[in-house]
Design a protein around this nucleic acid. Structure first.
Lengths: 230, 230
DNA sequence: CAGTGGTCTAGACCACGGA
DNA sequence: CCGTGGTCTAGACCACTGT
C-alpha cells in the first residue's frame, strides 16, 4: 500500500465527516470525540483535530468542552437565518449576472435544468438532483463576478444540503424548485434584472417555506424530537 | 511563571498574527513560515499551524505550497467584492432592525456616535474610532436577529479593518462616515425602513469609493507597489 | 479519583525548490 | 542534493466529568 492520493489527510477527513453529517448518516444529537474519530480513520488525532476545527467554523458541528463533538439539531431559526443569507446573496448575484452572463453560460444553465428534469422523482437520483442544483447556483454566482459570494455560499452550502436532503424526495416540491429556476434563466435571457431578482427571491422564499413545513410537520421518518445515537 | 490565561494558545496566536496583518505591522508581500512564527511565539508548530489554517479560511493570508505564508496585496477587486457583500448584509440587517430595535439599542447607538465624535481627527485615537465603528455595525447586526449575519461579518471584518486602517486618518472622510451613521440612527428612530436601507447602502458605497481612491492614488506612506520585508 | 477529552510538544517523514 | 516547508505521529499534560 503506497501513498497515491496527495490531498492532505485533514481535508479528506473533513469531507468524510461532512458527508456523514449532511447526508444524515450520523443523526443530530450524536456525540463524537477526537479519539474515536482518529481511530475510525486510522490516523493520529492531529488531522482529525484540524478537520474538526474546520467543520466548527462552518457551523456543522459544535464542540462542547469536555463533553465531545456534537452534531446539532436543525433549528427552525437556523433554517430561516441561512435561507435569508443565501437569498440576499443569490438575488444580488443574479441581478449582476444579468449584465455579465454569456450565451454559453445560458446554454450550460439550460443543460443543467434539462438533466435535472430527467432525474426528478427518481429516488435513487436524489443526490444527483441536489448536485445539479448546486451547479446551477454556483454558475450564477460565478457570473456575478464576486468571488466572496462563491466563498460564502460554499461555506454554508453544507447546511442547505443537510436541510434539503430530507426535502428533495418530495417530487412536487422539487418540481416547483426547478420550475422557478427555469423562470430565472428566462429572465436572464431577457436581460430583465428586476425579474431575475424577483424570481430568485421567490426561489429561496419557497425553499425556506418548504423546509420549515417539513421541520414542523415533525416526524417523517427521521426522529426530529429525540435523535440520540452512539 | 504559572499558566493563568486559559484561552487556547492557537487562539491567542491567531489574534496576534491577525493584528499584525490588519494593522500593517507586516506589510503585503511579506512571506512567513510556520517555523519562524513558532519560534517567535515560543511554542511548537501545531498551534501556529491551526492559527494559520484559521487565517487562511478568513482569507487574510495565502499559503503557497513549499514557499511559505504570504500576506497578499490588497487588490481593488477584493475591496469591491467585500464592500458589496457587507453592503447587502448590512442593508438587509438595518431594514430588519427597524422593526426590532429597542429604545435602549437606539440609546447605545447614539452613545457610540457621541463617543466617536470626540475622537475623530485625533491621530492617536484612530484604532478607537475603528473599534467604535465595529461596535456600531455589530449592534445593528444583532438587532436584525440573524446570527449568520454577525458571523459572516466577523469573518470578513478583518479585511475591512485592514483596508480602513489606512483610510481613517483622513479626518473629512471619517466625518462623512459618521454622519451617515447618524442618518441611519435617525431613520431607525423614525422606523423608516426604506430610508434606513438607503442610508446604509450610501454608507458602504461611499466607503468603497474612498477605499478605491486611496488604493489608486498609489503612494501614501506605505509602499503599495513593492512591500517586501523579512 | 479514575477516565476522558482537549491542547500542546517534540520530532519524524516526505516532497519540493533552489543553489 | 541539501535546505526548508508542510504534514502527520506519538505521547505528555492538565482540566474537568461523573461516578
Amino acid at each position: 500500500m503506497y501513498r497515491v492520493d496527495h490531498t492532505p489527510l485533514r481535508y479528506r477527513i473533513h469531507q468524510k465527516i461532512r458527508d456523514k453529517i449532511i447526508y444524515k448518516v450520523w443523526k443530530s444529537g450524536t456525540i463524537l470525540s477526537e479519539g474515536e474519530l482518529a481511530k475510525s480513520f486510522n490516523t493520529s488525532r492531529t488531522p482529525v483535530r484540524e478537520a474538526i476545527r474546520q467543520l466548527e467554523t462552518e457551523g456543522l458541528i459544535r464542540v462542547i468542552p469536555k463533553k465531545g463533538i456534537l452534531i446539532p439539531e436543525i433549528e427552525d431559526k437556523e433554517i430561516e437565518d441561512i435561507s435569508e443569507l443565501l437569498e440576499i446573496i443569490h438575488c444580488r448575484a443574479v441581478e449582476k449576472a444579468v449584465e455579465k452572463v454569456s450565451p454559453k453560460d445560458i446554454e450550460r444553465l439550460e443543460k443543467i435544468i434539462a438533466e435535472a428534469d430527467n432525474y426528478i422523482g427518481k429516488k435513487t437520483k436524489i443526490n444527483k438532483v441536489i448536485a445539479l442544483g448546486i451547479q446551477f447556483s454556483e454558475l450564477i454566482l460565478k457570473c456575478s463576478g464576486n468571488k466572496r459570494f462563491l466563498e460564502i455560499d460554499k461555506q454554508i452550502r453544507g447546511h442547505m444540503i443537510r436541510f434539503t436532503s430530507e426535502l428533495c424526495d418530495d417530487e412536487d416540491r422539487s418540481k416547483i424548485g426547478w420550475n422557478t429556476r427555469k423562470e430565472i434563466v428566462a429572465a436572464l435571457k431577457k436581460k430583465d434584472k428586476r425579474l431575475a431578482g424577483l424570481k430568485m427571491r421567490k426561489h429561496y422564499q419557497k425553499g425556506k417555506k418548504f423546509l420549515l413545513e417539513i421541520s414542523n410537520s415533525g416526524s417523517k421518518r427521521s426522529a426530529k424530537k429525540r435523535g440520540r445515537s452512539k
